[in-house]
Computed example of a mutant assay.
Amino acid sequence: MLRLLLLAAALAAATAMAAPDNPPLPLPKPPQADQAPAAGPPLPAEKPEERQEPAAPEPEKKEEPAAPTVPAPPPPPIETEDQATFDACTAELKELGAAFKLLPRIDDGEGCGIDKPIAMTRLSADVAIEPEATARCETLLQLARMTRDLIAPAARLGLPDMGRLEVVHQASGYVCRKRNSADTGKISEHARGNAIDIAGLEFEKGLVPMKIVGQEDSDLAAAFQRALNAAACLYFTTVLSPGSDGTHEDHMHLDVMKRTGGYRYCR
């Protein structure tokens, strides 16, 4: 009996020694065909392919009709001067002692020209105009009258130390161009022979340029310039005094342009 117990104890000890400390875990069984896979996070559903609709054909673009070309207005015709009026004008110039010559008709195209131009070197026996000025007789007659009636007497009062007036210096008579020498716009009155620009007055004792004066300028020279600016409109229908705009800072523009109702533009 004792021998049986000892043999049983020895077999138990041998079995315990042969067993590993961490017996292997059994491998999971593969899922059977009829078993559902283990639950996991839901997979996103596949987006169905969008059906590409065929692009609609673009409507045919209708060509816009070209805008009709508007022809530029024809240039104004050269003014035909009345012979009797012209003869009376030149006769008065001769009475004033003016020196001038008659020129052939000027036609430079684009409306530029003078029907009966004259070229003047003296406004009177006492006062020359330099350089020689070409314009219509009416334009130069008005300047000769203003020199006799206004400029010379006013200078004796406003510029008493300058002596006698000898020369009127002109900056522009006839010239074919647009107003203010612009590339476009209306034709200048210079292009019709209706305008003359005065740059300065030469006296026995020196040159007095046309200049900008303000109301705060209170000497006699400024008073003389203001007198010319104002009184010139009694002789000319357009007067642009020095400083009237950016293109008239060092001269006085004078012209005999005809306006409706005898309107005059003086600045």
Rank of each mutant, 00 (worst) to 15 (best):
M1I: 13
L5N: 13
L6N: 12
L6E: 06
A8C: 13
A9H: 09
A9W: 04
A10W: 06
A10I: 13
A10H: 13
A13V: 15
A13L: 15
A14E: 09
T15G: 15
P20L: 10
P23D: 00
L25S: 06
Q35W: 13
A38T: 07
P41I: 11
L43C: 03
E46H: 00
K47L: 13
P48M: 14
Q52M: 09
E53C: 07
A55R: 01
P59F: 09
P59W: 01
P59M: 06
E60R: 09
A67F: 06
A67N: 07
A72Q: 14
P74H: 02
P75I: 03
P76A: 12
D82A: 12
D82V: 06
A84W: 03
T90R: 13
A91K: 14
E95W: 01
L96S: 01
A99L: 06
A99V: 14
K101D: 14
L102T: 14
L103I: 02
P104A: 04
D107F: 04
D107C: 07
D107Q: 12
D108T: 09
G111Y: 04
D115H: 03
D115Y: 01
A128C: 05
C137R: 01
E138L: 14
T139Y: 03
Q142Y: 08
T147R: 04
I151R: 02
P160F: 07
G163F: 05
R164T: 14
L165M: 10
V167F: 03
V168R: 02
V168Q: 00
H169L: 08
H169R: 15
A171P: 10
S172R: 14
S172C: 12
V175P: 02
C176W: 12
K178Q: 14
G185N: 09
R192E: 15
K205D: 05
Q215K: 11
F224A: 01
R226I: 05
A227T: 15
L234F: 07
F236D: 02
F236L: 02
P242Q: 07
P242T: 12
T247L: 01
H248A: 08
E249N: 11
L254E: 11
R259T: 01
T260W: 04
G262A: 05
G262V: 06
Y263W: 05
